[in-house]
């Protein structure tokens, strides 16, 4: 074999060797544990903090409100839809939840829109329905019809 070819093959062998070493060194630990990805990534994603604690956690302390709510139309609603995520409040009760009293919050769901199905949700025309009044003067959000 000619000398220049031998030298080239040597260079290529070194290059491929370096690549293989790099591949060995740089491949992450849990690679191909389940498939061609980092298996540890699943655990990392799962370990993220959950921010909404769900109504069962709220009812642990606020049992009277949960009781009232369970009798009304809003029985299936999560507390945190209106009050915001509760993860900080659960750890520290001095961290206050949102208590929004304006009409806009109610109108998120109850505003009149032809696209909203009539049989699913009660809708009002905010301009015609007791204009200028606040929703909460007549409706208790925890028990809208009492």
């Amino acid at each position: 074999m000619p000398l220049q070819v031998k030298r080239l093959l040597l260079v290529f062998a070194i290059f491929i060797g370096i690549m293989l070493v790099l591949k060995y060194v740089l491949t992450p630990d849990s690679w191909r544990e389940y498939g061609p990805y980092r298996g540890n990534a699943i655990g990392e994603i799962a370990s993220q903090q959950a921010k909404f604690v769900q109504k069962e956690s709220c009812a642990d302390c606020h049992d009277s409100i949960a009781e009232i709510k369970s009798l009304g139309e809003h029985i299936n609603l999560q507390c945190e839809i209106c009050h915001g995520p509760g993860y900080q409040h659960v750890d520290d009760e001095n961290f206050k939840m949102e208590i929004t009293k304006n009409n806009a919050l109610c109108l998120r769901c109850h505003t009149m829109n032809a696209a909203s199905p009539k049989n699913i949700i009660k809708q009002i025309d905010a301009i015609e329905h007791n204009e200028g009044e606040e929703c909460i003067t007549c409706h208790n959000p925890h028990q809208p019809w009492l």
Binding site: P2, L3, L8
Partner: peptide
């Protein structure tokens, strides 16, 4: 690559 061969054979290769 420190190959200093200039022979006609090497050029043919």
């Amino acid at each position: 690559l420190w190959v200093s061969d200039t022979s006609p054979e090497s050029r043919k290769t």
